[in-house]
Design a protein around this nucleic acid. Structure first.
Length: 216
DNA sequence: AAAACGGGGGC
DNA sequence: GCCCCAGTTTT
C-alpha cells in the first residue's frame, strides 16, 4: 500500500470499531484524562491481558488515586492487588518507585513532555507517548508491538527503530487524527490482527495485507 | 502441560 | 542492539 491508501485504512478501522465493540478500546478510553491513572494503568498493562489489567485497575483506583496514596500503601497490599497480573513483585517495585521520583524530579507533578516523562523509572517512549496523548491530549504516537506488527503486515512502513516508526506514522495523517489513528492501530492489533492467529477471514484490511495469510 | 501476555533497562 | 527480567491466566 501507499500513503495514499492511509485515509481508506483509517476509515475502515473507524467503521470496524463502530460495529465491533472492543474491550481494548474501552480500556484505553477509561484511562483518559487522569495522568496518574494513565501512568499506573500503562505500567501495569505490560505483559498482562487487558481485561485483567482493567479489573485490577478498577479495584486499585478505589483505594489509590494519588502518589501519596501509593506511597502510603503497604507493599504487601499492593502486591496482593497486582497478583492476578503476574510479575506482581516487579510491578509493585515500579509503582513504589514513582512517588519519590516524581516528587524529586518534577515536584510531584507528572510532566507533560516525552523528554521529561522518560526520565521516570519504568517509563520509556511507548508509555510516555501514551501518557501525553491520553492524559494531556497532546500529539504523540505510541509504538508498541501491535502497532509495529500491523505496520509490517500492511507493508505500511519499514523502519529500523521505534522512534522512526513514530515519525513515519504521524506523517501519514493530519495531526487531528493522530490520537484516534494510534488507538485504532493498538486496539486492532490486540483484538483482530493477532500475532499468531490473526482473524483474517473478517479483516477489513485484508486487501492491504502483504503477509499472504488467509487462515482463521 | 503449554501458550499467551511486552516493555524498560543494563550493558 | 542484544539480552534479561518474571508469574499469572487461559487453553
Amino acid at each position: 500500500m501507499t500513503p495514499d491508501d492511509v485515509p481508506v485504512v483509517y476509515r475502515r478501522l473507524k467503521q470496524y470499531f463502530e460495529t465491533h465493540p472492543s474491550p481494548v478500546a474501552d480500556f484505553i478510553a477509561t484511562r483518559t484524562n487522569d495522568p496518574f491513572r494513565v501512568l499506573v494503568a500503562t505500567i501495569l498493562s505490560a505483559r498482562s491481558r487487558d481485561a485483567m489489567t482493567l479489573h485490577v485497575c478498577a479495584r486499585l483506583f478505589k483505594r489509590v488515586t494519588t502518589f501519596d496514596d501509593l506511597a502510603r500503601m503497604p507493599v504487601e497490599s499492593l502486591e496482593k492487588e497486582l497478583h492476578p497480573l503476574g510479575f506482581f513483585r516487579s510491578k509493585t517495585r515500579l509503582l513504589k518507585a514513582l512517588p519519590e521520583a516524581v516528587s524529586r524530579l518534577f515536584k510531584g507533578r507528572i510532566p507533560e513532555t516525552i523528554e521529561e516523562l522518560v526520565q521516570l523509572p519504568g517509563v520509556g517512549r511507548k508509555t510516555a507517548n501514551l501518557i501525553v496523548m491520553e492524559a494531556f491530549d497532546k500529539p504523540g504516537m505510541c509504538v508498541d508491538v501491535h502497532v509495529q506488527r500491523i505496520c509490517n503486515r500492511l507493508g505500511l512502513i519499514r523502519t529500523r527503530t521505534p522512534r522512526e516508526t513514530e515519525n513515519r506514522l504521524r506523517d501519514l495523517l493530519p495531526m487531528r487524527y493522530w490520537k484516534t489513528w494510534n488507538r485504532y492501530l493498538v486496539a486492532f492489533g490486540q483484538t483482530q490482527c493477532l500475532p499468531r492467529t490473526p482473524r483474517c477471514s473478517n479483516c477489513p484490511l485484508r486487501s492491504y495485507c502483504v503477509t499472504g495469510r488467509e487462515a482463521s
